[in-house]
């Protein structure tokens, strides 16, 4: 199906490349983030202004939040947490630009990120505790340990699934509502929704970030 109102896919289709929309738009977000990063780090000043100010507030606030929740151990996992928040946030917000589609409205993007999170927190658990990481799965009492092991394995596998579905459902739903409202009353009906969805998309990015942080906290601390 050809969708002429989506800018990037039209360009790439014109070039004869058939790349899925969500991949294209997440490349776009990556490009924007890399450009912003180079722009900020090129001229760092002690008294921040403009873009540097914005990034210092976001990253500084996130770091305080992570260290307050995980403790000092949180500093070594902070880079990926911050990346997740900013990346998802920008991906969600691209859905509000005319001519763009949110990559997170496609379940594949979210599943990829959720699987990365799943592997990453288990990696830290194994790195921190070695074979003793299995204690996280056995529960507090020894005689129900086999049952607890089964339940814990199910609940761990359910984590990436719930991360994926929550983000996908929310963002996809917002996109659909925007389209429906636009067909009802162009621009007039969609404009107020932008404020609500701008907030909701930020909250969804924050929820993904916060759950990742909670999972990492669980794998970093000792089992009890």
């Amino acid at each position: 199906m050809h969708q002429g109102w989506l800018i990037l896919p039209s360009i790439f289709e014109g070039m004869g490349l058939n790349i899925p929309h969500n991949v294209l738009f997440s490349w776009f977000v990556l490009l924007v983030l890399v450009l912003m990063g180079t722009m900020v780090t090129k001229k760092l000043s002690l008294v921040p202004s403009g873009l540097q100010n914005f990034f210092e507030i976001v990253i500084g606030g996130l770091e305080d939040f992570v260290v307050a929740n995980i403790g000092e151990a949180g500093r070594k996992v902070f880079p990926i947490l911050c990346t997740i928040f900013i990346y998802i946030w920008f991906m969600n917000l691209t859905g509000l630009l005319p001519g763009f589609d949110a990559p997170t409205a496609n379940i594949n993007t979210n599943a990829a990120m959720a699987i990365v999170v799943f592997l990453y927190y288990n990696y830290w658990g194994i790195k921190e505790h070695g074979f003793g990481y299995i204690k996280h799965f056995l529960g507090p009492v020894s005689f129900i340990a086999p049952l607890m092991f089964v339940i814990e394995v199910i609940s761990h596998i359910s984590r990436p699934l719930s991360l994926t579905l929550r983000l996908f459902g929310n963002i996809r739903g917002e996109e659909i509502v925007l389209i429906l409202l636009f067909t009802l009353a162009p621009v007039v009906a969609t404009l107020p929704m932008y404020f609500l969805f701008g907030l909701a998309k930020t909250i969804q990015a924050f929820i993904f970030f916060m759950l990742t942080m909670i999972y990492l906290k669980g794998s970093l601390e000792h089992a009890h």
Partner: peptide
């Protein structure tokens, strides 16, 4: 809500 549902479906 989703935590309850997804675990059930994984099982």
């Amino acid at each position: 809500g989703l935590h309850l549902v997804t675990a059930t479906f994984v099982g």
